[in-house]
């Protein structure tokens, strides 16, 4: 696997979200990702960034374009924060579960929208979510 482009974006306030989304859209366009897949990626990114702002007061996102040996290219986003962490990951990944007042679709919804979803969390230390969306699915 090769990383072709790389960029880190800090998320501290609500306005950063728009900038971040535009950057992700740029990356998706760069590898000519289809409109539907791009929308899915952007929506998943939007969910995760919102989580980061709400529960961890922000953090940073690493944006990468990655290329696989098997002709697959995609966009990989790594969201890392230093928030309180998630006490019960299994529950957090269930539809309709929320500690805040949201719909509880953030994490499970984001997972359904991307190709690869990975979450690591440590109580009191923070959470890292990595998502990858391939160009063709």
């Amino acid at each position: 696997m090769i990383v072709l482009n790389k960029d880190t974006i800090k998320i501290e306030k609500e306005q950063d979200v728009v900038f971040f989304r535009n950057r992700v859209a740029e990356y998706a366009d760069k590898i000519k990702m289809g409109l539907v897949n791009k929308t899915k990626l952007l929506t998943a990114a939007s969910e995760l960034v919102r989580n980061m702002l709400r529960y961890a007061n922000g953090g940073k996102v690493l944006c990468e374009i990655i290329s696989h040996a098997t002709l697959q290219t995609g966009v990989r986003l790594t969201f890392s924060d230093q928030g309180p962490g998630i006490p019960d990951i299994e529950k957090a990944m269930q539809d309709g579960y929320s500690t805040g007042k949201s719909l509880g679709l953030g994490l499970p919804g984001a997972k359904r929208l991307v190709s690869i979803f990975d979450i690591k969390t440590q109580l009191g230390k923070g959470t890292t979510v990595t998502i990858t969306k391939w160009k063709n699915g």
Binding site: L35, V36, K38, T39, K40, T43, E47, D95, L103, L105, P108, G109, R112, L113
Partner: peptide
């Protein structure tokens, strides 16, 4: 269309 498909996949 892309937004509609995404919303369905999201579960909304």
């Amino acid at each position: 269309p892309a937004v509609a498909i995404t919303l369905i996949e999201l579960g909304l």
